[in-house]
Simulated assay, not measured.
Amino acid sequence: MSDAVQHPSHSLKSSLPWLSGIITGIVSGVVLGLFLKAVQTLTGEKVYTLLLNIDFVPGLPPQLPEWIEFSLHLVVSVVIGIFYIWWIRRSGRPVRRGIFIGAASSLLYLPLSPLSSRVPDLNDAGAIFYWVVGHLLFGALLGLFGKYMHAKKRHQVHR
């Protein structure tokens, strides 16, 4: 009899990487947010404002308190973290996959920038640079978490 049949709760638990994905998403999302906030504070480039921007979401006021906007950002990061852990459990290569997700998420600059007058323009090279660096940092953190968890899983199997 297969392990999934004998232990259905174990099968469900291993199929959805909830806890590790949540932790990965929160930590990576907080670091991205802090990085972009520091960049905005030091340079004036409104990349943190862009990260938290919700002007385009129908039904929400154009601006909410920062902590609510940051919480919404973390919800997105947690969803990405869960997907990322699920993905690397099936395909490996945690660092490569993490950096890919970071690079891909940096492309959100293109559709988000024109949606608000409060954020940098599409042709703001400085903002684009910081945005991409921040998202590559986000991806690298995903990769480090994934590499650690992948190594931990292999270590547990070989005991």
Rank of each mutant, 00 (worst) to 15 (best):
Met1Pro: 09
Ser2Leu: 10
Pro8Glu: 02
Ser11Lys: 13
Ser11Thr: 12
Ser11Pro: 00
Leu12Trp: 11
Ser14Phe: 14
Leu16Glu: 07
Trp18Leu: 15
Leu19His: 13
Ser20Trp: 11
Ile22Glu: 05
Val27Ile: 15
Val27Asp: 01
Ser28Ile: 07
Gly29Trp: 03
Gly29His: 00
Val30Gly: 01
Leu32Arg: 07
Ala38Arg: 05
Val39Arg: 07
Gln40Tyr: 02
Gln40Trp: 04
Gln40Glu: 15
Thr41Pro: 02
Gly44Ser: 11
Tyr48Val: 08
Leu50Asn: 10
Leu52Gln: 07
Leu52Arg: 13
Val57Tyr: 02
Pro58Lys: 08
Leu60His: 03
Leu60Gly: 04
Pro65Tyr: 05
Trp67Thr: 10
Ile68Ala: 05
Glu69Leu: 00
Leu72Cys: 00
Leu72Gly: 11
His73Asp: 02
Ser77Thr: 02
Val79Met: 13
Ile82Val: 15
Phe83Lys: 02
Phe83Ile: 11
Tyr84His: 00
Ile85Asp: 05
Trp86Pro: 00
Trp86Gly: 00
Trp87Cys: 02
Ser91His: 14
Gly92His: 04
Arg93Gln: 12
Arg93Asp: 11
Arg97Phe: 07
Ile99Ser: 06
Phe100Arg: 03
Phe100Leu: 14
Ser105Asp: 02
Ser105His: 05
Ser106Ala: 15
Ser106Arg: 10
Leu108Val: 13
Ser113Pro: 04
Pro114Gly: 02
Leu115Pro: 00
Leu115Cys: 03
Ser116Ile: 11
Val119Phe: 06
Val119Ile: 15
Asp121Thr: 14
Leu122Asn: 04
Leu122Gln: 11
Asn123Thr: 12
Asp124Cys: 05
Asp124His: 15
Gly126Ile: 03
Gly126Asn: 10
Ala127Arg: 01
Ala127Met: 01
Phe129Val: 03
Phe129Pro: 00
Val132Phe: 05
Phe138Arg: 06
Ala140Gln: 08
Leu141His: 06
Leu142Asn: 08
Gly143Arg: 06
Leu144Ser: 09
Leu144His: 07
Phe145Pro: 06
Gly146Tyr: 04
Gly146Asp: 01
Gly146Gln: 01
Tyr148Ala: 13
Met149Ile: 12
Ala151Phe: 13
Ala151Thr: 13
Lys153Gly: 06
Lys153Leu: 14
Gln156Val: 11
His158Ala: 13
His158Gln: 12
